[in-house]
Design a protein around this nucleic acid. Sequence first.
RNA 1: GCCCCUGUCGUCUAGCCCGGCCUAGGACAUCGCCCUUUCAAGGCGGCAACACGGGUUCGAAUCCCGUCGGGGGCGCCA
Length: 506
Amino acid sequence: MENAEKLRVRFAPSPTGFIHVGNARTALFNWLLARQKGGIFVLRVEDTDLERSSQEYERNLIKDLHWLGLDWDEGPNTGGKFGPYRQSERLELYHQYAKQLLEADQAYYCFCPQEELERERAWALAEGRSPVYSGRCRHITLKEAQERIKAGEKAAIRLKVPEEGLVRFTDLVRGEVEFDLKLIGDPIIVRSNGMPAYNFSVVIDDALMDITHVIRGEDHISNTPRQILLYQAFGWPLPVFAHLSMVMGKDNTRLSKRHGATSVDQFRREGVLPQALCNYLSFLGWSPPEGKEVLTLEELVKLFDLSRVNRSAAIFDYEKLYWLNRQHIKLLPAEKKLTLSLPYLQEAGLAGEDITPAQSQWLSEAIELFLEGSNKFSDLPEKFLLIFDFQPESLDEESRQIISSDSARKVLKAFINKTAGVTEFNYEFFAHITGEIKKETGVKGKELYHPLRVMLTARASGLELDKFIPLLEQGAKLNFPRPIKNSLERIREFSTFLKLQEKQEA
RNA sequence: GCCCCUGUCGUCUAGCCCGGCCUAGGACAUCGCCCUUUCAAGGCGGCAACACGGGUUCGAAUCCCGUCGGGGGCGCCA
């Protein structure tokens, strides 16, 4: 039975903004299932809300999905035998099916003015009742309605819902769910402006597109009975439903800008890897059967299992996402790290548009070192400042503390003296004179190296000096748009800075 | 207000369906130690949870009922 019917799933976003991580997760789960089962993944654009939909948003949406690594077998620009895949291009279809319902007396025209409906709803709410449509227009005959419409009246179309009974369905993640029909009322299926209402167009499309599994957010669970009623009115077989829990922010409210980045687009710009984002998203409500957590898309496809999806809402944890991102960054080959890092360095003015092979080589080494412990690629420019930026006059509090002790002063002076006439500087030389200073002054360990670090970097922390010094010396020779001061230049600048300070102190 | 969904460490979760293997496992975060020429990374270790109250049972995180908490929905938005 299961192999007789090919699994068909869809992702049906409305192009009204940037794609949110919650929606991305829904898309991912659908895609994962389709790829695992050798099924079909359909992209359908729900653009019936003329006010909010736009072409540009649709392009963004497609860009985001591609970036995530998701592809689809049928969709707006891809085609497929169930098209078109943009709801605005399917209006004829909706009208045709609405007409069918009207003629079968399963739907009727409603002339109630919107303001009145709103008033009734407000009233019901105030009285503590469920706001259910009164059914006032239910008994207007089709003929009468058509005449009124001809005469210029506007009308919406409503589905006739049985007044009593239960709608029951088995949700793949939630189990048995039931709703009381008394609380449903006749839903509008076509608006008075002729556009289909959401609940109507999804059903028509899902049915016509042969969708077998409807996997979507939990916010749609209460739409499900209305949709089932429509399937029943047409005599169509029901798809399987699965409702995924919501993604929340730290304070347990719906994830929003206030919590930080929330759109796929933002994470891309920050320099989060798509495979890391997918990996993280998949862990919101699902976990692999064995402990392994750092997983590629291919591994996710293999391991994903809808029956392991849990039912409670999850809080989006940036820390864990960044941790996963670090893990995925480590997996990247060096060339890839370079190409992904470059835009950030260029934007910060640290690297030019044209890069010489020597620069490229140097950047690659530097990136390797600085990426260690970076959450995301956008952290890189800040880290590179260790090399590109040297300002002894604006030391932070910690660095000032470090160089203020007597032993620190002693070490620094000795170091400056030993480098006075020197023209060549490298790590071996540094190690050599540091050894001498250690012997002469008796200062060692942290007391010895920390002041020297501050002198060479104007910072209290950063790369290990045995890595930093070679990198700095090499980089200084490479003519970057922002010049790099080498060790000797730094030492001299720092020395004048120290003298100035001593004068002030005296 | 009404309806639906949901409730295991701070967070994501495993275990729950098919009670005993749970002195509740893992991961992130946090703390400590090790490594170390700082910080970070890495290695090792610690802290930390079955929302509450009743049942059922020899035995409950697991089954039943109730309470409380959280979320979603109640549109001519999707």
